[in-house]
Design a protein around this nucleic acid. Structure first.
Lengths: 356, 356
DNA sequence: TTGTAAGCGTTATCAT
DNA sequence: ATGATAACGCTTACAA
């Protein structure tokens, strides 16, 4: 029954032989070429079926000069946010008939460069890099002929210049921070802090925006704290990171950090939001069911992944890369910033309208 | 400076020409063949450097009959557990010089089959499938000549037969459940329930084990509840899933479900662990900082991914697949099953010793 | 409508 | 130690 005796895999030549045609005709028939007669098409299809023919796409790509493969570079597959982006990307790519090579570079520059080289070696038709610290223009250089989409660039120096390059997809972090600050001010908080994590461009942008907005809106100076990229793994230390006198409210770099801070504050004996309000960033699923439920800026992670793939495929087909796009974010107000809530009683999620 | 004028990518022939050798010699020099003289090796290396030569691995694979590519199939890239497995796999694979193609099949049989076909088309050197509902032996058939590693098989019928196939890697779920039940009994809980999710083999195994262990150890019948695979997304419904009279303790299928249940119970006005104790499964990071902190069975997700890649690479090199292995798990006791804890005061994590 | 033949960029075999 | 030359499995001019 099983034909494991033939060591060689079935090839197009085998199919052609069985169908009684040339390899060229078999190739055309399988590709759905209109010039092939219905009869031979059937014959070829049947032969392919009978032989369980599976094409060798490497050979095809070699000749046809396209591989229907996309390269995807991200910092960490285990991260909840990047995992979502990856999921969205893969889904959309697979839907368009593309296969995805994934490389995790864990924020190491050398790894990011190596990954791009891998993609070029594999002749990817397109490349997407997510939250990379590599300079986007260097990335473009190293991407070779492949169209490149840059999602949430995190190059440290990127905070200063605007970056209007084509193919850049990012969330409107500035708007998110503004919404958060406005919400905190409206709720009555005055002593507001920002807790940063890592040395990425996005961290700098968020801190700077909070600083500026708070000053412009209320003439208040932001208190800024900063911890290392792995600080969220040690919640108990985090409780101390805010100093001896807690601020009334803290905006955290992301949800991982905010949730860890929640734990750290609890360990320290501080109540949230009564002693300190906490705001996160990203909107990961667990933020919604933490205790207290976390107020956070929702970022369209899955959607960004999908868009990235879509944009890439379009660029491959049309030969033109879409201009930079910035996706909207929205603040979701939950318990962690609700000043006088009846403890233990949940309140419905409130989405702040941006007013733009 | 940049040489974007030549449309064609640099090829080995270019390097050979510049170095003044044949393509064969250039190939050998670059591959580090010992027979090549030091002088020509230098010449070729320099030429490759100068031309920024990047080999075409598709062409190489076509001729050499190995692609240094691994296929990785999983249900969902966004899931915290599978994301960890993927991260471990990619890390180990990259470390061994392999590139990974990832496909998410979201528990759809047809997608899983399609993914295996993709891998065969791409001539992967090895394939790893994680938590697939596909029958492992069918998977082996469809994997073609590639060695196959099966991580945490989730075929529904798999719960009954032992499955001693080579290349299977899984965690010792039965031991985990036993530890959980023993712990609950030792802590004084008698009315114990299992809350299942989905129709996978692992769910069946966990439920059945809990049932058996509880009966054998204490002559108590397990109360069993069951919800759909997406139930964890709706915590408020989950609170009601346990019926009107809450059990003293609930073992949940996984941490996602347990954390959602925590939220659902809070919404319902029930206190954990005072009204009901909760145990999770997997040991995802957020379980450790939930409130109450979640008692859970720690599964070595990252390690399983690493092992899978390691096993695959070994099989590729040696031609022999390692026998099935079962990785140990350990119960981590936290607040959600601590009967009379001073509320708000954290207790140190306790790892139960298995006693085997 | 179909076949012939020339590549695509490598590596492996066989000479030298 | 190196060079011709033939694959690898497929697509695509160019012929017929």
């Amino acid at each position: 029954m099983s034909k494991r005796h033939a060591d060689r895999r079935t090839t197009l030549a085998d199919v052609a032989a069985r169908a009684g045609t040339s390899r060229a005709t078999a190739s055309r028939a399988l590709a759905g070429d209109q010039r092939i007669s219905e009869a031979t098409r059937r014959a070829v299809r049947d032969a392919a079926e009978a032989l369980e023919y599976i094409p060798n796409v490497a050979a095809r790509g070699l000749r046809a000069r396209r591989t229907r493969t996309l390269g995807f570079l991200l910092p960490d597959l285990g991260d909840p946010v990047h995992g979502q982006v990856a999921a969205g990307f893969e889904l959309e790519a697979a839907g368009s008939g593309y296969t995805v090579i994934m490389v995790a570079a864990r924020n190491v520059l050398a790894n990011e460069r190596r990954a791009l080289r891998v993609f070029v070696e594999r002749s990817t038709d397109g490349i997407c890099i997510v939250s990379c610290i590599l300079d986007p223009s260097e990335a473009r250089d190293r991407a070779g002929p492949s169209p490149l989409v840059v999602v949430q660039p995190d190059h440290p120096r990127l905070a200063s210049r605007p970056l209007r390059l084509d193919g850049v997809i990012r969330s409107d972090d500035a708007s998110g921070v503004r919404q958060a600050v406005d919400h905190l001010l409206a709720t009555g908080y005055r002593d507001i802090a920002y807790l940063g994590m890592g040395r990425t461009g996005s961290n700098t942008v968020r801190r700077a925006t909070a600083q500026r907005v708070l000053w412009e809106a209320a003439g208040i100076r932001l208190r800024a704290f900063q911890v290392g990229a792995d600080a969220w793994r040690a919640p108990s230390l985090l409780g101390e990171a805010l100093g001896s006198t807690l601020p009334e409210a803290v905006i955290c770099y992301d949800d991982k950090l905010a949730l860890a801070l929640l734990d750290g504050l609890r360990e320290r004996g501080a109540r949230v939001p009564d002693d300190t309000a906490v705001v996160g960033f990203d909107g990961i699923p667990f933020a919604a069911i933490a205790r207290p439920r976390l107020t956070t800026v929702m970022t369209p992670a899955t959607e960004m992944g999908r868009r990235a793939a879509r944009t890439l495929v379009d660029a491959i087909v049309t030969g033109r890369m879409a201009p930079a796009m910035t996706l909207p974010v929205e603040l979701v107000v939950r318990e962690s910033t609700a000043r006088a809530t009846a403890s233990g009683r949940p309140m419905a999620d409130l989405v702040a309208s941006d007013g733009r």
